[in-house]
Simulated assay, not measured.
Amino acid sequence: MPEDARGELIDGRFDYRLQKDGRVAVTWYGRPVTTLAGQDAQKFLKKMDGLDEHAAQLAMARVTGNFKRGNEKGR
């Protein structure tokens, strides 16, 4: 079963922005959801590098915790 079976992440609802202090702000429809700092921020940025749009949406959904519970795995 695909992780986004209902196609809910197609619209690009999640986004992220690197801040001057090195933190990463993850937003949902432009509203702040979570902020990553330090090693978590660096790990997130490294993971995002090279992902296509859909895979990036899935990764941001996971990091915010706004993801259907069940079969997702931390990768």
Score class of each variant (00 low, 15 high):
R62D: 05
D52L: 07
K20W: 12
K46Q: 08
T27F: 10
D11C: 13
L51V: 05
D21C: 06
R69K: 15
K73A: 03
E72Q: 14
F67N: 10
A56V: 07
L45D: 01
E72P: 05
R75N: 01
A59E: 14
K68C: 08
I10Y: 12
G65I: 06
A41G: 03
P2I: 11
D21Y: 09
N71S: 09
L18P: 01
G65N: 06
M60A: 03
I10F: 12
Q19S: 14
Q39K: 13
A61K: 03
L36S: 01
D52S: 04
G50Y: 04
T27V: 13
D52P: 00
R69Y: 10
G12A: 08
R13S: 06
R23Y: 03
G74F: 03
Y29D: 10
F44V: 06
K20Q: 15
W28V: 09
F67V: 14
K46V: 04
E72N: 14
T35M: 10
E8L: 14
Y16S: 00
G30C: 07
Q19L: 15
A25P: 00
T35V: 11
F44R: 11
M48D: 02
G38I: 05
A61H: 02
A25H: 05
V26G: 00
L36W: 02
K43I: 08
E53Q: 08
H54I: 05
Q39C: 04
A61G: 03
D49S: 06
T35F: 07
Q19G: 08
R31H: 10
T34R: 13
R62W: 14
G38N: 03
A61M: 04
E3G: 06
A37C: 05
G12F: 07
G12R: 12
E72W: 14
L45T: 03
R13C: 07
E72C: 13
D40E: 05
P2G: 05
F67C: 11
R13Y: 06
P2A: 12
L58R: 14
A41M: 06
A5L: 15
K46L: 08
R31E: 09
I10P: 00
F14N: 01
A37I: 06
K20Y: 13
N66M: 14
L36V: 02
Q57T: 01
D52Y: 07
Q19K: 15
Q57D: 00
D4V: 04
R62P: 01
Q39I: 08
F14K: 08
R6P: 00
M1I: 12
N71F: 07
N71P: 04
G30S: 07
Y16T: 01
Q39T: 08
T27W: 09
V26N: 01
G12Q: 08
E72M: 14
D21P: 00
V63H: 02
D49I: 02
K20R: 15
V33R: 11
M48I: 10
T34H: 06
A59Q: 15
T35E: 08
